[in-house]
Design a binder for these strands. Structure first.
Lengths: 138, 138
DNA sequence: TGATTTATGTCGCATTACGATATATCTGCG
DNA sequence: CGCAGATATATCGTAATGCGACATAAATCA
């Protein structure tokens, strides 16, 4: 795949990309924690809320979207239900499925988190775009 | 911070950004695993190798770069040393410090991983840049 | 209808990061 | 110089979370 040998600058760019991504992740994790939400639970709420199309979110679709195994999604949803963020209901059309909906509590927390994330992303974006572009001619 | 109320499209964009990042992380984790390396250990090797400047990497600097607590870095380095990827030596200039260096084994694995990461990043970059740009006027 | 597939759930295990705490070394100030 | 405090690293027990193996229920299809 890689024709030429990798340079020090290649490694440095890869390292910088990861550092930038980690800083964003760290911001996001901290912000969620401050709202009393583990990072993965925040991601789950966002995935449920941001799920386009009219169809309801299910445990399995959430797993795909979060790139975790279906049974890990089950556990995650279990924690969300226990904490009062998600309502889980059997899908009448296919009773194997569980449809997921956010509670008002979740809506409120997610809106707060999403607002500050928009701000942070707008701040980070130019830097990240520069780094990404630097890979084109490397 | 956020003046206007968030729209469905805002949530969808946030969700899509995360999904894109997760796909990259998943690619990276899988690639590292195939080389027999847990993801965090891969990141540590990259941080050590991609550390610009002439100064040697230390346990503490690695912690900063990986955004983990110093003692978590200690543990991570311990695993890397045990697995034969890193050499840890007391810094003569400050004997509290441990300088870190990659073994040949680590160099080889990291080069392989970095090459396929460059390819993957080049493929992902345009999509990610588009998503990031979409936040500007949102 | 019975076999297979799909969707979800349960349990024990492994990884990994953290908090609390400890030890060794360095640095600065009186 | 000599000690107090700061700095760098290390150890141990704990917690969060995902996975593999396995289980259950419902739908699908031959």
């Amino acid at each position: 795949m890689a024709r030429d040998k990798l340079s020090d600058a290649d490694y440095e760019a890869l390292s910088n990309l990861r550092y930038t991504l980690r800083r964003f992740m760290d911001f996001s994790t901290s912000a969620a924690q401050q709202e009393g939400l583990p990072a993965q639970q925040h991601q789950a709420l966002l995935a449920i809320r941001g799920h386009g199309g009219g169809e309801a979110m299910t445990v399995g679709k959430l797993a795909e979207r979060l790139m975790i195994a279906p049974h890990s999604s089950t556990e995650l949803v279990g924690r969300l239900v226990a904490a009062g963020y998600v309502i889980r209901q059997v899908d009448p059309a296919d009773r194997r499925r569980q449809t997921l909906a956010l509670t008002q509590k979740a809506d409120a927390v997610l809106e707060q988190l999403s607002a500050i994330h928009l701000t942070e992303i707008r701040e980070m974006a130019p830097r990240l775009i520069d780094i990404l572009r630097s890979f084109k001619d490397r």
